[in-house]
Design a protein around this nucleic acid. Structure first.
Length: 563
RNA sequence: UGGGGCGUCGCCAAGUCGGUAAGGCACAAGGUUUUGAUCCUUGCAUUCGGGGGUUCGAGUCCCUCCGCCCCAGCCA
């Protein structure tokens, strides 16, 4: 599946753009932008926005700019800028230009002076608390600031002195003069410049006043030639302001802001702010913790980029609230990996099996296909010997007919190998099963025995010629299907929602060929799931594998239903 | 209770001028299978938040009610 064939299904934004292009609006051009603030890492929700903005532009022969919305230097850093660029590129998208809102600080300043000159902006000297009080409430209109009617000259003078650094943080702000009684609170004289004596990661100490989002974004879009400015629904109420600024300044290009609903994923926290708390408080192991929905986390978890693109395509784009099931994401991963992940064997919860009638000290190499349906993927040699490991879940001392694995006195096939029979269980003094004594049927390699049907096949690994490996199993980080909703408000509320078993570290064994695994390799451990090497934790003598996702498990359902 | 949005199957989501409910995931039942995987087949909304109305005909138009989400940063 390459990018060219990744067609997106129809959605309302696509319809709007189709119509615009058909009508020749903007000369038929389509230019979008992806505008992250560099104050954190990108996550799946951003991936949705990225696929949308980049995908739409691409489909209409346009392009997309990456623009860092860097108007608030105190929260931003180069680390985040670099991480964001790396993540977008990894996702498979190329931006036309790398821009920064800070690139436009000079123009933005000039526009502000113009607005002041036209009596459309004024310097307010109320403090933050007073401004809040004057703003009114959702149901009551606000009141004009006593500074609202300052003369143009006074405003200009004050604004220039703000810019010159004559005032301390918070002493004055620049506000748009719109309507303090507007039912839309965003129009009640929004603040567009504040004083902040801090260095900026791009502009250093050139500025001590910084413009705010509502003023900056629309103008940046217009200056950049953006035709369609896509954002999430929380900005819907800001659109009148977006349009107001562009109209009052009579900008040549008036981009169209279109809002869509942001993504919610069940059992997943999807807000940058809260993700940041998880990282800063050490609840997870960094922004790239495999349990996080960050692009970096998903990459480390082993999700292929194409899988994330496919997911974004499948969830669609609407204005409805949503809470997508994890099963959909998992389905995307399995669909992508199944045809192309080489098969290997790995035993996660090892139980030693001694095959008593197999010669001691002997090892034979079994040739096993790398993929059940794709011969082109070839075969590999897997060591087999007298002692092997199987998974504890694949043996029971007794079980009903439904259980198709190894039972005392019964037979099972070792994948790619022989049929074995369980003869005896060896236990410790405490009663724990230590190992199994089995026998094998030498005549069953590659052929089925006569007169009896072997119902089960289990995976295994040689005890002598395998590799000890750490295997990390992941479950959702949260125990509720809408942690963002539940954990709102109280600072520590989400702590109680953390799933204590979100990471389970197992010590197992994998076939020796996995010693060659490198970053970006992805395997299916037969009957277990898809795994990749965790380069961060692996050491030369002990690889660490992350379970990307398990296989579908209809047996688990059967078992659960009967218990 | 001011303003702005949204409500089509368990979860997503198509649904152009009103013409008689796509698809995916999930689920269920069969079949194939040396992965209880994959694959294949089949099933899965007489109904579109509720109630009225217009119409030969409404998810699509009108009225009304209900529910949910967003907004009171010198954050984005």
């Amino acid at each position: 599946m390459n990018q060219e064939t990744e067609k997106y299904p129809p959605n309302f934004i696509r319809h709007i753009i189709e119509r615009d292009v058909a009508e020749g609006k903007n000369g038929g051009a389509v230019m979008t932008r992806f505008p992250p603030e560099p104050n954190g890492y990108l996550h799946l929700g951003h991936a949705k926005a990225i696929c949308l903005s980049f995908g739409l532009a691409r489909d209409f022969g346009g392009a997309t700019n990456l623009r860092f919305d860097d108007t608030n230097p105190i929260k931003e850093s180069m680390e985040f800028i670099n991480a964001i660029k790396r993540d977008i590129a990894w996702l498979g998208f190329e931006w036309q230009q790398e821009k920064y809102a800070s690139d436009y600080f000079p123009e933005l300043y000039d526009f502000a002076e113009r607005l002041i000159g036209e009596g459309k902006a004024y310097v307010d000297s109320l403090d933050a608390e007073q401004i809040r009080q004057y703003r009114g409430t959702l149901t009551e209109p606000g009141q004009d600031s006593p500074y609202r009617d300052r003369s143009v000259d006074e405003n200009l003078d004050l604004f220039r002195r703000m810019r010159a650094g004559e005032f301390k943080d918070g002493e004055h702000v620049l506000r748009l003069k719109i309507d303090m009684a507007s039912p839309n609170i965003n129009l009640r004289d929004p603040t567009i410049y504040r004083i902040r004596h801090v260095a900026h990661h791009q502009t250093g100490n050139q500025w001590c006043i910084y413009p705010l989002y509502d003023y900056t974004h629309c103008l940046s879009d217009s200056l950049e030639g953006i035709t369609h400015s896509l954002c999430d629904l929380s900005f819907e109420d800001h659109r009148p302001l977006y349009d107001w600024v562009l109209d009052e300044l009579a900008m040549n290009l008036h981009p169209q802001q279109i809002e869509f609903s942001k993504l919610n994923l069940q059992y997943t926290m999807m807000s940058k702010r809260k993700l940041r708390q998880l990282v800063e408080q050490g609840i997870v192991d960094g922004w790239d913790d495999p349990r996080l929905p960050t692009i970096a986390g998903m990459r480390r978890r082993g999700y292929p980029a194409a899988t994330i693109r496919d997911f974004c395509r499948r969830i669609g784009v609407t204005k409805s609230d949503n809470n997508v099931e994890l099963a959909l994401l998992e389905s995307c991963i399995r669909d992508y990996l199944d045809p192309q992940a080489p098969r290997r064997m790995g035993v996660i919860d090892p139980l030693k099996v001694v095959i008593e009638n197999y010669p001691e000290g002997e090892t034979e190499m079994l040739e096993i296909a790398n993929h059940p349906k794709d011969d082109a993927m070839g075969t590999r040699q897997v060591a087999f010997g007298r002692e092997i490991y199987i998974d504890r879940a694949d043996f029971r001392e007794q079980a009903n007919r439904k259980y198709k694995r190894l039972v005392t006195g019964g037979e099972v096939r070792l994948r790619g190998g022989y049929v074995i029979r369980a003869n005896e269980v060896i236990r410790s003094d405490e009663g724990e099963i230590l190992e199994l004594r089995c026998s094998y049927d030498p005549a069953t390699l590659g052929v089925n025995p006569e007169g009896r049907k072997i119902r089960g096949v289990i995976h295994w690994v040689s005890a002598r010629a395998s590799l000890a490996a750490e295997i990390r199993l992941y479950e959702p980080l949260f125990t509720v299907d809408n942690p963002d909703g539940v954990a709102d408000g109280a600072e520590e509320a989400y702590r109680d929602l953390i799933n204590p078993d979100s990471l389970v570290v197992k010590h197992g064994f994998v076939e020796a060929s996995l010693a060659q695994a490198v970053e970006d390799d992805r395997f299916q451990f037969e009957r277990e799931g898809y795994f990749c090497l965790d380069v961060r934790h692996s050491t030369p003598d002990q690889p660490v594998f992350n379970r990307i996702v398990g296989l579908r498990d209809s047996w688990a359902k059967i078992e659960q239903a009967s218990s």
